[in-house]
Structures are given as structure tokens and as C-alpha cells.
Amino acid sequence: MVKAVRLAASRLGRVRKFFKGTYLFAMLVFMYAPIIVLIFFSFTESRTMSSWKGFSLGSYQQLFRDAAIMDALWVTVSIAVLSAVISTIVGTFASIGLYSLKKRPRAVIENITQLPMVNPDLVTGISFMLLFSFMGFRDGYFRMLLAHITFNLPYVIFSVMPKLRQSSDMLYEAALDLGCTPWEALKRVVIPDILPGIVSGFILAFTLSIDDFVISWFAADGVQNLSIYIYAQARMGINTKINALSALLFITVAALLLIVNLKSIREERAAEIQNRKVARKSA
């Protein structure tokens, strides 16, 4: 009887593993097969995806010769860098100020800060469009930059806040006792202690800015980043040059996300090792 139960449990476990593996495989195929096809056809001599006419880097050569694409690339990269830097600086100091509040006001402000993250991009984009029109902002580049800084701020704040919770207030107080001014203690003690969270917030803000379409579409006025350019070109028919551009964008974003994930894994392992050392000493 016991053997029969164990055998049935073993078979049930194998079935579960099979369906888990099958589900994971099907999900990965569904998600990444279109991207693989897109990248594959970026290396064809054909100008469309209708047929394969041999291996060629012509699409990439045409890509870097296209003045419109280079202008869109400049707008995308410059907006991403500026918005990531500004939102990281503002978000870091906002996190420090938020962390210093009492529990109830901090909880209220944290919930308010989360609203832009859960708000639909369509609503956010239309809100920016109406706001900029009401305020009379006509510079499309400046409008897009302000929009990107605004929607990046919550992501930076919630990347820095966990590091502030992990750090000890005693370090800041000890720095003050040793003669540091509040600014020196912040610069020499607090910021180096939360630096991993600041870097993660910067990379996340940069990635979100490069990848954004909906908010940029509504906020900008006559200015195109790469996502807007790709959308406009796709409406007239997919060209392999767009495949090459999309492939480069995917590789860039994937590399940045990989860096963030590896950094998080290393931090978790370092925290586990530190906790084990503390546990051994206390034992």
C-alpha cells in the first residue's frame, strides 16, 4: 500500500515537472520567437521580410546612413541620458527625505508616488499633452524631456528606498559625532552606502526612457525618438532597415536589464554571506 502511494506520488511529480517545463518552453517561444525572426531577417539582402535572399549587412549599413534615423537616435539617447541623470539625482534626495519622515506620512507619500507607476501610459501621455498645451510649452524636445523625468522618478525612488531601509541610521549619526557636517555625512557615508540602489535606479530610468513610446508620442510636439520613428515607418510597411534598428534596440535594452539583474543577484548573495557571518559571530 505504501509503495503504491509512493509510486503514484512519484508519477504525479513527473507529470507536474513535465507540464511546468512545457509551459515554460511554450511561454518563451511565444515571447521570443517574433524577436528572433525579426533579428534573423535583419541580415537578409531583401528589403522586405517576404523572402530570404542571402546573408547581408546592408540593412545595418543603410541604417547608419539614414539621417532621419540618426536624428531620432540622437534624440532618444540624449533624452534617456539627461532624464536618467536628473531623475536619479532628484529621486535619490527625495528618497532620503522620504525615509526621514515619520511612518504614517511616509506611507501616504509612498502610495502617492506609486500612482504614476500603475497609471496607464495612455492617461499619463494625454495628461502631459494637455498640461504642456495649457502652460504654452512649444519645444517638443523640452516637453519630452520633462515627461521622461517625471515618469522615471518613481522608479528611481523605489530603487533607492530598499537600500535606505537596509542601511543603519547609526552610521550617519556616528559621522556627525566625528565632526562631519550634515552635507559631508550625506556625501561620505549615506550616498556610498546606498550607491547600488542609485546605480540600479539610473539604469532602470535609462532603459525605460529608451523604450518609451506612448508618453513620448503624446508629450512631444514635432520631435521623434526611435520608438515614434519605428511606429511611423511601420505604418508604411516594414523594411529590413527597421528590423536592424529594432534588433539594436532589443540588444541594448536586454544588456541593460541583464546588468541590473546580475547586480541584484550579487547584492543578494553578498547580503546572505554577511547575514551568515553575523549569525556565526552571535552564536
Rank of each mutant, 00 (worst) to 15 (best):
A4D: 14
R6H: 12
A9M: 02
V15K: 00
V15T: 10
K17M: 07
F18Q: 03
F18H: 05
G21V: 08
T22N: 01
Y23C: 06
F25M: 15
V29Y: 00
Y32A: 05
P34T: 13
I36M: 11
I39Y: 03
F40I: 12
F43I: 06
T44R: 06
T44H: 06
E45K: 15
E45S: 14
S46E: 04
R47F: 11
M49F: 03
S50Q: 07
W52H: 10
F55E: 04
S56E: 03
Y60D: 09
Q61W: 13
A68T: 01
I69P: 01
D71I: 08
A72E: 02
I79S: 13
I79P: 02
A80R: 08
S83M: 04
V85A: 13
V90W: 01
F93D: 09
S95Y: 04
L98K: 09
L98H: 12
E110P: 01
N111R: 09
I112S: 15
I112H: 10
L115C: 13
P116Q: 04
M117Y: 15
V118H: 06
N119Q: 07
T124H: 08
G125T: 14
I126Y: 11
I126N: 11
F132R: 06
G136A: 11
G136H: 03
G136N: 07
G140H: 12
F142Y: 10
R143M: 12
R143D: 01
A147T: 14
I149G: 03
T150K: 02
F158T: 05
S159D: 06
V160N: 05
V160D: 13
M161Q: 11
S167T: 11
S168L: 08
Y172H: 04
E173M: 09
E173N: 02
A174I: 07
C180T: 03
T181D: 01
T181C: 02
P182R: 05
K187G: 11
I191S: 00
I194D: 00
I194L: 09
I203L: 15
D211T: 06
D211Q: 02
I215G: 08
I215W: 01
S216A: 15
F218D: 00
A219Q: 05
A219D: 05
A219R: 02
Q224D: 08
N225I: 10
I228V: 15
I228L: 14
I230G: 05
I230S: 06
Y231T: 05
Y231R: 09
A232R: 05
Q233N: 14
Q233L: 03
A234I: 06
R235W: 00
N243S: 10
A244P: 08
S246N: 09
L248N: 03
F250E: 04
L257D: 01
L257Q: 03
I259H: 01
R266Y: 01
E267R: 08
E267D: 09
E268W: 04
R269T: 10
A271I: 07
A279T: 14
R280D: 14
S282E: 13
S282K: 13
S282A: 14
